[in-house]
């Protein structure tokens, strides 16, 4: 059997017929060709497939595409807006938060969700927030620093000033 689903991915609406057993991550990678979301395991352990489903960090390997019918999805490809990198994307570069890059999209998506809930995290909170994401290259320290860097940047006065200016 195949089922029609309609969902919004990175602001673009898609309608497709999919087999019920198709995992959301395979839908994104194989149907929509959004290959920035990766598969690193088969037991929901590594977090490389993390995306946002209706604003929540989600392991897209543990969700069926049919479950995402009507959902709003953001993947790593949707994080930069108007060619401007998301502060986390900039931070990972500035703090050397990646090496091979395979876990990076999942790390960034998890961190982005986390920073919406905790705008001024400490080191311990950041490390705990990464509980569902594995990295084999970095030893995590520079990922922690990247997230701290992005948090600082996102709450820096400069950002507020821009907002204020915009309202003036």
């Amino acid at each position: 059997m195949s089922i029609k689903i309609t969902l919004t991915v990175n602001g673009v609406k898609h309608t497709n017929k999919v087999e019920p057993r198709m995992l959301l991550v395979h839908y994104l990678r194989d149907v929509l060709k959004l290959t920035g979301t990766h598969v690193g395991c088969d037991t929901s352990g590594c977090g490389a497939c993390t995306i946002h489903v209706n604003g929540k960090a989600t392991k897209s390997c543990t969700m069926l595409a049919v479950q995402a019918d009507k959902a709003k999805i953001i993947t790593i490809e949707g994080m930069a807006t108007h060619h401007e990198l998301h502060p986390l994307q900039e931070a990972f570069n500035q703090c050397h938060g990646l090496q091979c890059g395979f876990c990076t999209p999942g790390m960034i998506m998890t961190a982005a969700d986390f920073l919406t809930r905790n705008k001024k995290p400490n080191e311990k909170e950041i490390r705990e927030a990464l509980e569902g994401n594995l990295c084999r290259c970095t030893g995590y320290e520079n990922i922690v620093k990247s997230i701290q860097y992005a948090a600082d940047k996102m709450s820096a006065p400069k950002a507020r000033k821009t907002k204020k200016e915009a309202t003036v």
Partner: peptide, 11 residues
């Protein structure tokens, strides 16, 4: 880094 942080690495 940029290709990896934006999801454009090619594995």
């Amino acid at each position: 880094d940029k290709r990896f942080t934006t999801g454009h690495g090619r594995y």
